[in-house]
Simulated assay, not measured.
Amino acid sequence: MFSYRHAFHAGNHADVLKHTTLIALMKYLTQKDTALTVIDTHAGAGLYRLDGDYTETSGEAQEGIFRLLSEPKTPAAPAKKAPAGTKTAATGTAKPAAAPGWAPALQDYIDLLRGLNPQFAETGNIAHLKIYPGSPFIEQQFLSGRDKLKLFELHPTDFKSLSGNIEQLGVGRQVAVSREDGFEALKTFLPPPARRAMVFCDPSYEMKSDYGRVATCMADAVKRFATGTYVVWYPIIPRPEAHDLPRKLKTLAVKASRSWLNAALTVKSSKLTTDTSGEVIRPGLPASGMFVINPPHTLKAELQAALPQMVALLGQDRNASFTLEHGG
């Protein structure tokens, strides 16, 4: 079961996929002159220390952002057959190494980390990469004066940290932080005044009811404001609800005649193993996905370039692979 606090997971392989995709979305959506409302239903603390107790206890950043920025790994396993029934789909592993240079979406992700870690930017030494942004700080980085960001977080400690972190930005009323249930609070903000919005939904999924709440929340949101961009992160674990969620979101998008995109990154096998003493070793999080309703037309190509590099550099065994589907 996951720890509710995202501080344990900051900078892991799921964050690499999640935040690379989020940056690509924000970069595109903030290009227009019309105001954009961004709503983050489960905002977390906003900023995390990669050298803090939580992150060092879990060690997940070592298999995520630090692994990405280390020497290239050699991927294994041949490309897998594309899923049937999608308009377009791509799957596979990566050919060895992302040598010529980063895919543009990954470069944007790394550049944002450099901006928050000047010593890392100056030296290139990953030992100097200490500050990691959560989704609120990534979203805020791209806002112009006309845009609004609404953040919701229920956890009392994370809410307090989030409020303090946002206050230090000095952005005034542009960013609003509320200790509310983001699933319910979202309803009051759709449709937005300027008729442009992106919603990012990233709950902990500690309670299996979260899977159903995400699907219900997105169905209601699309009904209220059909042209918004809706973004859902989800874990891929041996639990029926986890595998049902992207299927439900796809069905929702198709029924609403909305375009959709589903990107998934697998870094290792999900099977249980045993150590030399016979004790069961649980694999942790083996894979995760990002489902986007009404994605920008540029997102598919950006992820097609970035996902093979993620597999090459983050893959931990021969099961490492990616899937990229879209339709509508």
Rank of each mutant, 00 (worst) to 15 (best):
S257T: 06
A256P: 02
A253W: 07
A256D: 04
R213K: 13
S204N: 09
D220S: 11
R247Q: 06
P240G: 11
S204A: 11
I236Y: 04
A215Y: 07
K208G: 09
P203A: 02
V214M: 03
R239M: 12
V222C: 10
Y234A: 12
V222H: 03
K248I: 02
I236W: 00
D244Q: 15
A215R: 02
S204V: 10
G212V: 06
R239F: 09
R213C: 03
R247F: 05
R213F: 02
R239D: 12
D202K: 01
A219Y: 00
L249C: 07
K223W: 10
A242E: 08
P203I: 08
L252P: 01
C201D: 01
L245K: 03
R224C: 12
R213T: 00
Y205D: 10
D244M: 15
P235T: 13
R239G: 03
P240I: 06
D244N: 15
S257R: 14
G212M: 00
H243C: 03
T227D: 08
Y234G: 11
M207Y: 12
H243Q: 13
A226V: 09
L249M: 10
A226P: 02
K250A: 01
G228W: 07
T251R: 05
G228P: 11
S209M: 07
G212P: 06
D210V: 02
L252M: 09
F200T: 11
T229V: 12
R247E: 08
T216E: 08
P238C: 10
V232C: 14
A226H: 08
F225W: 11
E206G: 05
P238W: 09
K223E: 14
R213I: 09
P240A: 10
S204G: 00
K223A: 13
R213M: 05
A226G: 02
F200V: 04
V232F: 08
T227C: 06
D220Y: 10
Y205C: 05
D210P: 05
D244A: 15
K208A: 14
S204W: 01
T251E: 13
V232K: 11
K248T: 08
L252C: 06
L245G: 06
S257L: 03
T216V: 07
E206S: 06
Y234L: 12
V232N: 11
T229C: 15
R239V: 07
F225S: 10
R258K: 11
K208P: 01
V232R: 09
K255Q: 15
I236S: 04
E241T: 09
A215N: 12
R224S: 13
K248L: 09
T251Q: 04
A219G: 00
P203G: 12
K255Y: 02
R258D: 00
R224L: 14
K250V: 05
A242R: 01
Y211R: 07
S209Q: 15
F225N: 09
V231C: 10
E241W: 13
V232I: 15
P246Q: 14
S209I: 11
C201H: 00
D244P: 12
Y211M: 01
V214H: 02
M218F: 13
E241Q: 14
S209H: 14
I237R: 04
E241A: 14
D202G: 04
L249S: 11
G228M: 10
I237K: 05
M207S: 13
K255M: 10
